[in-house]
């Protein structure tokens, strides 16, 4: 690859940065709402990756107007439309689980939940 390739890959690189930001939030943060926000960021980055691959420079939105035109690829759009709707369903279900956990434990921090679980099981605080 040469320096001239960088504009052609910029989209993909930012998408990867966004994906990794989302992954980092999911792995490193203990707050359950923040974890779901991380998942949403990762998801949207994947959408961007697909849509970027479908774009043709000089193309237009895939709507037939009768004039001869270059259209961007409509198939990634269809896939991502479905993915967005499935994504909101899983987000909503995850948030409902968070609310339920918050009701049962009084906290939505991962380490405090683990501590409460440990105390309920063994009857005492965790020994390191």
């Amino acid at each position: 690859m040469t320096l001239a390739d960088i504009p052609g890959l910029y989209n993909y690189w930012i998408v990867i940065l966004l994906m990794m930001t989302g992954l980092y939030i999911v792995v490193s943060r203990g707050n359950l709402v923040k974890k779901i926000v991380g998942l949403v960021i990762f998801q949207t980055a994947v959408f961007l990756l697909y849509i970027s691959m479908g774009k043709i420079i000089g193309g237009t939105a895939p709507i037939l107007t009768g004039r001869p035109e270059i259209f961007s690829n409509p198939l990634p759009h269809v896939l991502i439309l479905t993915a967005i709707v499935v994504g909101i369903s899983t987000t909503a279900l995850g948030l409902a689980l968070v609310v339920r956990i918050g009701d049962a434990y009084g906290t939505i921090e991962e380490d405090e939940i683990a501590k409460a679980d440990h105390e309920a099981e063994f009857g005492g605080p965790e020994t390191p």
Binding site: V33, I36, V37, V40, T44, F47, I51, S52, G54, K55, I56, G59, T60, A61, P62, I63, F71, S72, P76, H77, I80, L81, I84, V85, I88, T91, A92, L95, V98, V99
Partner: peptide, 26 residues
């Protein structure tokens, strides 16, 4: 990126509904 349908859905669902759901959770 020419994905106008996806943009509609993302603006309505991603910026709208999912924000409302998260605020409710908070």
């Amino acid at each position: 990126l020419d994905a106008v349908d996806v943009a509609f859905i993302e603006a309505a669902v991603g910026a709208g509904i999912s924000t409302v759901l998260m605020l409710g959770t908070l």
